[in-house]
Design a protein around this nucleic acid. Structure first.
Lengths: 333, 333
DNA sequence: CTGTTAGCGCCTTCAG
DNA sequence: CTGAAGGCGCTAACAG
């Protein structure tokens, strides 16, 4: 018998004595705040599970993505998961690097709004870490994803403008290699087509989802010999830039130019939103960012607990909501 | 000699032969995209270092904290660190739970804007995980922290109002148990005192840093028999609520009421900020959130690389900036 | 049912 | 310089 064994035996033999004598051996210890604090790293190594999910967003300035992350964080936390947050800054290399890091850190799953969908479509050799795409989902993607119907969203916003009498409609598109951008563009085109309104080339602007391009394209539109009477702008950051352009050129909104933006340009705060306080109060197509994040996380967690690395063709589609405020005016024909 | 050894020996003996014969044994493998993807979990366990930092913020709706996180993420990433993001929702229990989780996950360090400074002041038995406080730093805190001089910031904003002729000044305070809130209140009081302006009790409102309290307190102030001519509001979320109250009551700003808010109510986006587009364009005391986050992360990383768990009394203090826009009007005496 | 052991994948040390 | 072994802290499997 080794000395260690002998000692243990001794302790065990004496234990009842102490207890009987009334010593509170365990009370204070278990009441101690730092009770027992297991090493999750070691545990993760052993059980091959980190209880951590990685989320990669392309833009941390965009309140839409911040909302998504809020939703993800809430859902993850309530299931005991932690979230590793990565910002790709809309840079493919960064995104790749982030994904590599997440995989090497053995996250249990990944939530991704990709800036480089080509590599997703190609089917990355991503081990078999479960993946849920959000917001940016390739058409026909065969996997778990959450998104909105961008064609429909842009279509109905455009139709709203047309129904109010607008015939000179401009569109500021995002990066057209992204499905969100091309789908919104398609929705816009479709609505015009259905109303038999020709689309003038100079009214279709191609931006990149960043504020400057909204500003620049806005300026160009406003300074056209025949400026449009309404502009649909395909994301929140560009809308910011567009509003700036409008304010600088002193064009009156909505009197001279009507505007609809995609996304609230500021986070929803307990029922208030800054859009309400803008001049003019901005009419927007609002995506339920928080809910999308929550949902995406839940889908991922379900995949994890059911042990199904492939999301079975599940695409959850949310409805965008046209929030009518005061940046759109009716137009006499 | 065990069979395994024998096999290995054989392989080693034959290796040169294959190489000599021109077989490219390693080329394709090392050129493979998934090259070698080490298990960071195992590595972390071995080297007792996770290259991960935890950051705990109290409010994910606040664009100030989002800015901070952006800064943290950038700094962390550029040093190869990942960040575990936690939102305490201004709830002490959540915060405790998050901290416990972060410690059990063996993060290398923690960045914290605490909602429960009492426990920090008490000196938590936090192992010796390096900690950098940001934004919310107890007075006289003996550790690494980054913050702004809140007394000074509120003082100079108040002085600005006084210099413009205002004598009926109201203040909407945050949670006064937090140093940011009490310091800003103190700065406000000091400025009045120095100008020999008495502080009327009904002009000093106590909020909780959330939008509703800005709304509620704003409403109360505006409906006073003798309403103030200017309001200083101590954070961005409450300012949102206040603006809402102003807009609902149709009190004219800045003509009837001047307003200064703390923090930009929306994230800075490449030089544009929504404040510029609000009606009225909002004058604010802006904290450099992004820089604060960057700095806090850098301080932490330095502590890590120098292996100094105690930040040596280092408090880095940023300057807040009064961004004068159009929500403040001069007042004839 | 309790107590022991093997090994997760890596790095560091030490032997050859 | 190259290769083998031990062990980080944990848990699942197994032995008593």
């Amino acid at each position: 018998m080794k000395p260690a064994h002998r000692l243990r035996l001794l302790v065990l033999a004496l234990l009842p004595l102490f207890v009987w004598a009334g010593f509170d051996l365990f009370g204070p210890r278990s009441a101690d705040i730092r009770a027992f604090n297991p090493d999750e790293v070691a545990r993760s190594l052993r059980v091959k599970k980190t209880t951590t999910i990685g989320v990669v967003i392309p833009d941390f300035s965009s309140s839409f993505f911040v909302d998504v992350v809020r939703g993800v964080e809430d859902a993850a936390r309530s299931s005991g998961y932690s979230v590793l947050l990565c910002n790709s800054n809309d840079d493919q290399q960064q995104e790749q690097r982030h994904l590599t890091v997440l995989l090497s850190r053995r996250v249990d799953g990944i939530l991704l709004a990709s800036t480089d969908l080509y590599s997703i479509g190609r089917g990355q050799p991503w081990s078999n870490t479960p993946l849920v795409l959000f917001d940016r989902v390739p058409n026909g993607y065969q996997g778990a994803a959450v998104s909105i119907d961008n064609v429909e969203a842009a279509y109905s916003a455009t139709k709203y403008l047309i129904d109010l009498g607008h015939r000179s409609l401009a569109f500021i598109a995002g990066r057209l290699d992204l499905p969100t951008a091309s789908d919104r563009a398609e929705g816009f085109r479709k609505a015009l087509e259905h109303a038999h309104i020709p689309l003038r080339g100079e009214y279709f602007k191609r931006g990149d989802y960043h504020p400057q391009s909204g500003y620049q394209n806005g300026l160009e539109l406003l300074k056209l010999p025949h400026p449009p009477t309404a502009i649909l702008c395909s994301n929140g950051m560009m809308t910011l830039g567009l509003l700036r352009a409008i304010s600088e050129t002193k064009v009156l909104c909505p009197d001279e130019i009507s505007v609809i933006g995609f996304d609230e340009p500021a986070p929803d705060a307990y029922g208030f939103n800054l859009s309400t306080l803008l001049k003019p109060e901005l009419t927007v197509v609002a995506q339920p960012g928080y809910e999308m994040g929550q949902r995406a996380a839940q889908m991922l967690l379900t995949m994890l607990s059911n042990n199904e690395p492939e999301g079975k063709n599940k695409l959850f589609t949310f409805q965008a909501e046209l929030r009518i405020r005061k940046s759109v005016a009716a137009r006499a024909q």
